Amino acid sequence: MINTTQILEDNIVKLIPLEHSHTDLLWPVAQQVDLYKFGSSDISTLINLKEYISNALKADNVIAFAIYDKRTSSYVGSTRFGNIDTKNKVLHIGWTWISPATQGTGLNHKMKFLMLSYAFEHLGFEKVELRIDERNIKSRKAVEKLGASLEGILRKNVTTKNNFRRSSCCYGILKEEWPTLKQTHFNK
């Protein structure tokens, strides 16, 4: 069974299991982020954010986190493990949104290191997948900096804002690739 109460942290970031009580703490950040631009979730109102959190907490194959930046002592977003397939040992990392002020500071890279380490080294998963809107060049570059391989593009598979049908770039990291990537992409 997967521990859904595990806190993942280092000296910069703490990933705290998401709870309903995080709604008010995340609302100031949610107002700065247009999650619906590239994804299928809309957190543009407090009601929508509450529903987003409730749906994450109800899902059987999800471990969702609130992101806490230790440098600023503030909550700066949310992320999760999703589409967790324990039989085939595959999961997705995604649904990530962080404050604009936090973007480009290295926090996302640190956070992904914690999540990848946990997925491969503690949960024993064989593969981690990340899916990104083909138009979201900034996020694609961030995932490529992790050493993830582009495996293909799912054409028009997600409906986003204004009923736009996005295509998703599918990236993956295999368990046997992790030790090398850990040294080459995260050892700084």
Rank of each mutant, 00 (worst) to 15 (best):
M1F: 10
M1L: 05
N3W: 08
Q6V: 05
L8A: 04
L8I: 10
D10V: 08
N11H: 11
V13D: 00
P17K: 07
L18P: 00
E19D: 11
E19V: 10
H20L: 09
P28I: 06
V33K: 02
Y36K: 00
K37Q: 14
F38S: 03
G39C: 02
S40F: 06
S41C: 03
D42P: 12
D42N: 15
D42Y: 07
S44Y: 01
L46R: 15
L46I: 15
I47S: 11
I47V: 06
N48V: 02
L49Y: 07
L49K: 02
K50Y: 06
K50E: 15
E51I: 12
E51C: 05
Y52Q: 03
Y52W: 01
I53S: 04
N55V: 08
A56T: 09
L57M: 07
A59C: 03
A59G: 11
V62W: 04
F65S: 13
F65A: 14
A66K: 00
Y68A: 03
S73W: 00
S74L: 09
V76T: 15
T79Y: 04
R80W: 00
G82I: 03
G82R: 09
N83Y: 01
N83T: 04
N83E: 06
D85M: 05
T86V: 14
K87A: 10
K87Y: 11
N88K: 10
N88I: 08
K89Y: 02
K89D: 04
L91Y: 12
I93E: 10
G94I: 02
W95K: 10
W97L: 10
I98Q: 15
I98P: 12
S99V: 01
A101L: 09
T102M: 06
G104R: 01
G104W: 01
G104S: 05
L107A: 08
H109S: 03
H109A: 06
H109F: 03
M111Y: 01
F120T: 02
E121P: 10
H122I: 06
H122Y: 07
F125Q: 10
E126H: 13
V128C: 08
L130I: 14
I132F: 10
D133F: 01
D133S: 04
E134K: 09
E134N: 13
R135T: 07
R135S: 11
N136C: 08
K138A: 08
K138S: 08
K138I: 11
S139T: 11
R140Y: 13
R140M: 04
A142V: 08
K145D: 04
A148L: 11
S149M: 13
S149Q: 15
L150S: 07
L150R: 09
L150M: 07
E151R: 08
E151V: 04
G152C: 00
I153T: 15
R155L: 00
K156M: 04
N157I: 05
V158T: 15
T160Q: 13
K161A: 07
N163H: 13
N163F: 12
R166T: 14
S167H: 10
S168D: 09
G172E: 11
G172M: 13
I173G: 01
L174W: 09
E176V: 05
E176A: 02
E176Q: 02
E177D: 13
E177L: 10
T180S: 14
T180Q: 14
Q183S: 15
Q183V: 12
H185Y: 03
F186E: 02
N187Y: 11
K188I: 07
K188S: 06
